[in-house]
Amino acid sequence: MKNLFEFIVEKAIFLSGAASIIFVVLIFIFLLKEGLALFGEVNFFAFLFGQNWYPISDPPQFGILPLIMGSVFVTFGAIVIAVPLGLAAAIYISEVAPHSIRGFLKSGIELLAAIPSIVLGFIGIIFLAPLLKNIFHLGSGLTALAGSIMLAFMALPTIVSIIEDAIVSVPRSYKEGALALGATHWQAIYRVTIPAAASGILAAVMLGIGRVVGETMAVLMITGNAAIMPTSLLQPVRTLTATVAAEMGEAVSGSSHYYSLFAIGIVLFIISFIINIFADIFLHRSKAMKRRKK
């Protein structure tokens, strides 16, 4: 009797351990089950490379290229903004800042990662969009650029903490060696510390991209939501995530429109899976460096 109980507890613990695997597989299966139904009616290539997203016109068109490009534009803009700033902030915190504000900044930035994206999206609508409208003389400030800026700030805490971690785990002797050879502080940081922390920085970039691609509410609120092929950051765009969020409620269950949203879900799943693989590779390299330090 006692053995049976022990057996059950052990199995329950193992099953919980396997829960992550179970959920990842289940999510993928359910997405496939609903999403693949679309390809009975719509050609796979017409879906992935079609330039028109008119899901409710007659006949409907399910080309998600404008949505993919929308996500690419917003993500690209966000990363171009967030990575240099994040790198600078991480260098400042780990190498330049006086000890007294170092801890404050570090925990402050981590704290800011907890601010809900819905709040940042709201600030985007009220503060950022009108500002951009005036600066660039646009009809509306709700553009890819607004999304990029807001998402850059959303990704910054992640990027800063990971880069800071990577910089701190560079062996002290590297930098001391450079300084002993007569390098200035900046030369040592730029030529020695940063290259040595490169894999950690790349991991931060990948995780930042992951965070930005998957973000839904802020982009839904501030990118203008026009499903057209973007040509500049100053245009309204619509991302993959925003499309799912905006249209899931109105899509008739069992219609092609409904299935197409799950097909977008599959695309998102695969994108985040690939990003995660790269982030993992870079993180492992970065951790190998940490072990060497010890």
Binding site: I27, T216, L261, G265, A279
Partner: peptide
């Protein structure tokens, strides 16, 4: 290793996708 890896994958899936999973289920 596989469990750790899939935990990472699960945390990287956009939350909207987890939302539509819960919706179907």
């Amino acid at each position: 290793f596989f469990i750790r890896y899939s935990a990472d994958v699960l945390s990287s899936i956009p939350t909207i996708v987890i939302g539509i999973f819960a919706y179907v289920l």
